[in-house]
């Protein structure tokens, strides 16, 4: 119990200090672009917990979820295919290196031409950025399948779906999770960026609008909301990771203790 409290205390300590510093340092601020934190906090509720929640925040998160999910399916699917087949790997590797090197925001204008300016384009932008860390980590994970386990599957004739599920995906899962974690932060960034071009709703769009309308406290509250969403999503990610990889963390600890 005390251990848990200590951990919570350690995790919250620095943020509390930083917020306090910001709060007091900005308390008497008359700088138009750096309003007091107090003002920002005051506008936070009215700004976001009204219709904007439904009109902007939820659609943004929906697009993020859709893009991220699609990137996961695509990245893991292609990664398993490429990772488990030497020939496919040889053929696709140069192309993948090239595509991976393109910064996804550059694709926004291109995708606008192809997919218009609706939800589809924004989701495509998110996919185009999220898919690479997942794909490349999956390839690496699939290639690192233990040889003895592979032989075990061959001798006991564990094949097809059983083999994919219990050998390939599970042994690659620590790497897949690593890729998925990287992809999540990329996804949040792209969610915002995709809404800065030719959009009419969304978190990124709203923040830009506040800036253009000189509603500076509201703009800052949007930045804070994005930060909070990022923290929340990464906490959610941890919970899922804990479920999926409990065997991995357990076996790692067991090995260290030996």
């Amino acid at each position: 119990m005390t251990a848990v409290l200590t951990r919570v205390g350690l995790a919250l300590g620095l943020p509390v200090v930083l917020v306090a510093v910001w709060w007091f340092a900005s308390a008497g601020s008359t700088d138009f672009f750096f309003p007091p934190l107090r003002t920002i906090v005051e506008v936070f509720g009215p700004t976001w917990f009204g219709e904007r929640l439904v009109d902007d925040v939820l659609p943004s998160l929906g697009r993020l979820a859709a893009g991220y999910a699609a990137a996961l399916v695509l990245g893991v699917g292609l990664g398993v295919l490429i990772g488990s087949n030497r020939w496919v790997r040889a053929v696709t590797e140069p192309v993948l290196e090239f595509l991976r090197a393109i910064p996804p925001p550059v694709l926004v204008p291109v995708l606008m031409l192809v997919a218009g300016i609706g939800n589809g384009m924004k989701i495509l932008v998110i996919i185009s950025g999220c898919v690479w860390p997942i794909l490349l980590n999956t390839v690496a994970g699939v290639r690192a399948v233990d040889g003895v386990l592979e032989d075990t599957c061959r001798t006991y004739r564990i094949r097809g779906t059983l083999r994919w599920r219990h050998l390939v995906l599970r042994s690659a899962s620590p790497q897949i999770v690593t890729g998925a974690r990287q992809a999540l932060s990329v996804g949040i960034i792209l969610m915002v960026i995709s809404e800065m071009f030719a959009a009419s709703s969304g978190l990124g769009f709203t923040v830009i609008q506040f800036k253009d309308g000189f509603q500076i406290p509201e703009m800052w509250s949007g930045v804070i909301l994005l930060g909070l969403l990022g923290v929340l999503l990464s906490m959610l990610f941890r919970v899922v990771e804990h479920q999926v990889l409990s065997w991995y963390h357990g076996s790692r600890t067991a090995q260290k203790e030996r």
Binding site: L149, T152, Y156, R159, L162, H166, R170, S173, W247, S251
Partner: peptide, 27 residues
Amino acid sequence: AVVFQEYGRSLFPWLRVADNVDLPLRA
């Protein structure tokens, strides 16, 4: 069936003992 010399590595670390024994039978 083979009992491998590297017995530790021949068990699936993500499956419980019973499921490790069970998997070949399922297959």
